[in-house]
Nucleic acid binder design. Structure first.
Lengths: 234, 234
DNA sequence: ACGTACACGTGAATC
DNA sequence: TGATTCACGTGTACG
């Protein structure tokens, strides 16, 4: 069951003619030629004898060339179909190597496990570091700094994106000790650097989400506006 | 090509008997009964006449019951096979809905896209939000500040938790302008406040992950140690 | 006209 | 032993 390419005798069809017998004549599938329609009617199967005879349509001159063409086309057809199956099974085998604990599963169970894996992987990627969810009305990076009442100092860096699900991440940094009030320019420097860093991170996350599949969101508003939000400092 | 369940006439096989003709008699596949082996030898095909005749083995009393059994088994077999195909195709359709831009792909291309998606999803989950992946051996919050070579100042706040999958989140804040070098105590204040804030956030995330389902991790090492890591400043 | 993709029914194998 | 899975060759539709 395990090996999908049985003994790698898939190079040609010579062995299968041996399986069904070289003269079993099971081109019987061609008897499915119902109502004798548009099948170029060169060969038909006499349903009482099971033999392939010439079609009574044409008295024409291409008799055995038609039969050889039929057999060649049939051989090409079966070989192409075998290649198609091999392609699909190779991908299935790759998926078996990719998803754990699927080595002994059949095809359907393997695919079920694959879709389960994809769903869970997507969930864990979208809920990455499940940030505090505070809805806002615009995409923005905002960094504010202000003095608290007791003389301590605090930053509030908020990052709002519309993917996934319009999530806001808010970081609040509060100093435990009070600062002298005459270094507002250094505070502004820190505010600007934090704003720039968060914008860069948001840029990368958005670029990564660009290749993420649609969940339930429409196509609009996928990109995020950078550097156009206020980095106000009170 | 698009609809995989053609016209949802897959409830039974009555229509297909119509397709191949009700009396086309294409049980010819049974002629593949090579060497008359262990196939319960009730029916064989005369290879010269292409007719199904009784097996010469038993003179016994189960003649037409054997033939009906054969036909019933064959019908059950084909129906079971059809159900198997439907199951597989249903999973494939689910995967089509799960992976974007695969609506018009054939099976092989769809599977190739699925394995590509799984690979990328796994990569992005392990490298969570492409935060620089720095494996650590303990859960910790670490905040470091140091001067760069050009006189600018940068913070490096790293947050390592064991859920999910021992991920490290690293934030690097870099100031664009240089600072005078005599305010190291204010830098220390900022470092401490950032460390405290990240520890608080990690606490909340951990509490939220408490109710999140386990993926493949054992139960050990779910809580995170706070305030015991170094907040060093160079 | 020819290749490609899919569903189908079948024989063999496994449990 | 009956049920289930798989590879196979084939018919059919489409570009």
């Amino acid at each position: 069951m395990g090996s999908y390419f049985w003994d790698s005798n898939t190079s040609n069809t010579s062995n299968y003619s041996g399986i069904f017998g070289p003269n079993s004549g099971n081109l019987g599938g061609f008897s499915g030629n119902l109502r004798g329609g548009s099948v170029s009617q060169s060969l038909v199967l006499d349903s009482e004898r099971g033999e392939i005879v010439k079609a009574p349509a044409r008295v024409g001159k291409k008799h055995e060339v038609s039969e050889e063409n039929i057999k060649a086309a049939l051989k090409n057809h079966s070989e192409a179909e075998r290649r198609r199956r091999e392609r699909i099974n190779a991908h299935l085998s790759t998926l078996r190597g990719l998803v754990p604990c699927t080595e002994k599963m059949d095809k359907a169970a393997l695919l079920a496990e694959v879709i389960s894996q994809v769903k869970q992987l997507k969930k864990t990627t979208t809920e990455t570091s499940e940030g505090l969810l505070i809805p806002m009305d615009t995409d923005e990076v905002r960094v504010e700094s202000h003095k608290d009442g007791d003389g301590t100092f605090s930053f509030r860096a908020s990052l709002c994106c519309d993917y996934p699900a319009r999530t806001s991440y808010v970081f609040v940094f509060t100093s435990r000790e009070e600062m002298n009030s005459d270094n507002s320019e250094e505070c502004q420097i820190l505010v600007n650097s934090v704003h720039r860093s968060l914008s860069t991170i948001l840029d990368k996350v958005s670029a990564a989400a660009e290749y993420s599949p649609r969940t339930t969101l429409p196509n609009k508003r996928r990109r995020i506006s950078f550097f156009d939000s206020s980095s106000s400092s009170s």
